[in-house]
C-alpha cells in the first residue's frame, strides 16, 4: 500500500487519521485543525471573539500549537508560562521557557508572554515543595498540577483575563477518564469536561480547545507549522501513570481505530444526559490567605503547601507530609 492521497487535493498526504477515515496533505491538515478548533470553541461556547484569552504555555507542542491556532483564528490570546524550577540536571524549565519566549517573539506584538517564577515568588521550586509531602518525589506530578492550577487561576484573575485556555488534547483527556474510571472516582468524572465554568471567589473559566484532537495530531500541527517546541518529556514524568494509561489506550487504538475518540465523546454525552445525578460541585469558600476559591475551610491546599509556618511545624513534629493535604488537594480548586 502506497502513501494515501490527500482527500482535498490528491497530493501525497502527510498524515492519515483512520478514526476519521481522513488523510490530508500539510496545507489541508493545518486548515482542518484550525477549522475544527474554531467549531469546537463555538460548539462548547468556550469564549467569544472579543474575549481576552490567557493560554497556559509550557514550551511543548500542545500549548504552543494552541496559542498559534488561536492567533491564526483572530482571537486575542496571550501566553502564560509558569516557571516551576524543574532542573534535574538538564535545565528543563530554563529550556522550556526559551521555547515559549522564542514563539512569543515570533508573534509579537500581536501577543505577549507573561512569566510566573514559582521559585522567586514562594522561595521553593516544585521539587522542593513536593519533598515536603508524604511520598516526596512520587507525588511530584500531583504537586506540580496543584501549583500550576493555582498559579494559572491567580494570574488570569490578576491580569484580567476572563478565560484560561490549556493545551489538553484528547489523549490527555482520555487518559484521565480511563484512570478515574478504573478507580470509579465519580466526583472527578462528573467534573471532567472541555469547559470548566467560572465560580465564586475568583474561580476562572478554564477551556480546552484542543480536546478533540489526538496527541499525534497536535504534534503534527506543530511540525507542519514549523513551531519549535521542546520535544523532551519532563524528567520527572518518566514512569508516570498518565503515560502508562496513554500507552494502553494507544494499543487499543491500533486494533480498533476511533477507540479513544469514542471513549471520550461517549463519556461526554453520557455525562450530559445525567449519568451522575447528585454529584454537584461543593460550595466554594475563599482561602483565608490567598483569597482563591477552595472547597475546604481555612487555607487552600496550595497555601498549606507553600506556607513556611505549616511546613516548619510539620518538620518539628517529625511527621511526614502536611496535615490534611491529601484530602485538601482533592477538594481544592485544582479539582473543580
Amino acid at each position: 500500500m502506497g502513501v494515501h492521497r490527500c482527500r482535498k487535493c490528491a497530493a501525497d498526504s502527510v498524515i492519515n487519521m483512520p478514526q476519521h477515515k481522513l488523510a490530508l496533505c500539510g496545507e489541508h491538515f493545518l486548515a482542518w485543525v484550525e477549522k475544527s478548533t474554531f467549531d469546537f470553541i463555538h460548539k462548547h461556547r468556550m469564549f467569544e471573539p472579543e474575549d481576552r484569552v490567557l493560554v497556559a504555555v509550557s514550551g511543548g507542542k500542545d500549548s504552543l500549537s494552541l496559542w498559534a491556532i488561536l492567533l491564526k483564528l483572530g482571537f486575542h490570546a496571550d501566553g502564560l508560562y509558569i516557571d516551576l524550577g524543574i532542573d534535574d540536571g538538564c535545565g528543563y524549565s530554563k529550556r522550556s521557557v526559551d521555547y515559549a519566549r522564542k514563539f512569543a517573539q515570533s508573534v509579537s506584538p500581536a501577543a505577549e508572554l507573561h512569566v510566573v517564577d514559582v521559585g522567586a515568588l514562594y522561595g521553593k521550586t516544585v521539587a522542593e515543595l513536593a519533598a515536603r509531602r508524604a511520598g516526596g518525589r512520587k507525588k511530584l506530578c500531583s504537586v506540580c498540577g496543584l501549583v500550576k492550577r493555582h498559579e494559572m487561576n491567580r494570574a488570569a484573575r490578576e491580569l484580567g483575563y476572563p478565560v484560561l485556555a490549556t493545551g489538553h488534547n484528547l489523549d490527555d483527556e482520555a487518559a484521565v477518564l480511563f484512570g478515574n474510571t478504573l478507580r470509579w472516582e465519580v466526583e472527578y468524572l462528573v467534573r471532567q469536561a472541555p469547559v470548566l465554568p467560572s465560580g465564586e471567589h475568583g474561580l476562572m473559566k478554564r477551556v480546552k480547545p484542543l480536546a478533540r484532537f489526538y496527541e499525534r495530531e497536535t504534534a503534527a500541527y506543530a511540525i507542519v507549522s514549523n513551531i519549535d517546541y521542546i520535544e523532551e518529556e519532563c524528567p520527572f514524568s518518566k514512569g508516570a501513570t498518565s503515560i502508562r494509561l496513554k500507552e494502553s489506550l494507544n494499543s487499543m487504538e491500533i486494533g480498533s481505530p476511533g477507540t479513544k475518540l469514542n471513549f471520550y465523546f461517549s463519556f461526554l454525552r453520557a455525562r450530559k444526559s445525567g449519568i451522575f445525578p447528585g454529584c454537584e460541585r461543593p460550595a466554594l469558600k475563599a482561602c483565608e490567605k490567598c483569597g482563591q476559591a477552595t472547597a475546604i475551610p481555612g487555607l487552600c491546599a496550595f497555601c498549606r503547601l507553600t506556607d513556611p509556618e505549616i511546613a516548619s511545624g510539620r518538620e518539628n513534629d517529625g511527621q511526614e507530609g502536611l496535615p490534611g493535604l491529601e484530602n485538601a488537594s482533592e477538594t481544592d480548586i485544582s479539582r473543580l
Partner: peptide
C-alpha cells in the same frame, strides 16, 4: 512530516518524534 506509508528511500535521514507527553 511524512506519512507512515512512506518508504524510507535510498538517501537522507529520518527523525522519529515521540508524541506522548504527560505527568
Amino acid at each position: 512530516l511524512v506519512s507512515n506509508e512512506t518508504r524510507l528511500g535510498t538517501e537522507g535521514e529520518i527523525k522519529l518524534v515521540s508524541v506522548i507527553s504527560g505527568g
